[in-house]
Amino acid sequence: MTSRLGKAWLIAGYFFLYLPIVTLIVYSFNDSKMVMLWGGFTFKWYGVIAHDTEVLDAFKLSLRIALLSATASVLLGTLAAFAMVRYQDFWGKTAFSAHINAPLVVPEVITGLSLLLFFVTCERLFGWPDRGVLTIWAGHTSVGMAYAAVVIQSRLLEMDKSLEEAAMDLGCKPFQVFYLVTLPLIAQSLLAAWLLTFTLSLDDVVSTAFLSGPGSTTLPIVILSRARLGLDPTVNAIATITVAVVSVAVFAGSLWLSRQETRRAQEQAAAYREGMQQVAA
């Protein structure tokens, strides 16, 4: 009885999670200008966006900003995580820690607004920077860095510290320890942090709305403004492509990870059996 009830809840949960996405995908094949009225199956909206220069330009810009800000976030996030984990005490560590975590809890509207005010003041005083790619990039990086730092920090904390000591013991200077041992060992978390900040940047609307200038419209901004003018099936098509790309990437990624995990466990078990046989012999 309980298990049947549990199953019902589970299914209700899945509906809640996936029904909106499924609806969106289905209606992207709708051959009718009216979004919520089914008018037969068609691929035409996909054709339309392929020739929509506004969408294509916005997509390219989003991609460029996401690449740049993910990379910058991981670089800065690594440094920040290192400072937090490897240095016991330094002047202002609490303030630094608060600064790293602030973007995670401060509403993005506030972050966006404060950055906007800052850039406007800068522009008035120094005539630089114009609002555009640079300011969006800076905004995304300041948020992304916080996420990256948290991800990398947790990996650094769980890493066996004696690995770094062993490297030093074997003759590595501190910098060599970092790039010969630490970096390869946290590589997976760097990749995870990069993907996370890339996605965050790619779909960011709020701070981008504050920081973008004329001629620097990202894809989410385009979608938002079109949706505001009245729903348009092209938006559904864009969204469907995004969902498809993301699901394939996530699915492939987790498959690869679980395969590796299984192989590793098998190899470990084999090594253990072998060891036991040698003891017995």
């Binding site: 066996d160 004696s162 690995l163 000591e165 062993a166 030093m168 013991d169 074997l170 590595c172 200077k173």
Partner: peptide, 14 residues
């Protein structure tokens, strides 16, 4: 440590 002619085997082997 990296300038000492001393090497250590760690408990976790590292």
């Amino acid at each position: 440590p990296y300038e000492r002619p001393i090497n250590m085997m760690f408990q976790s082997y590292a």
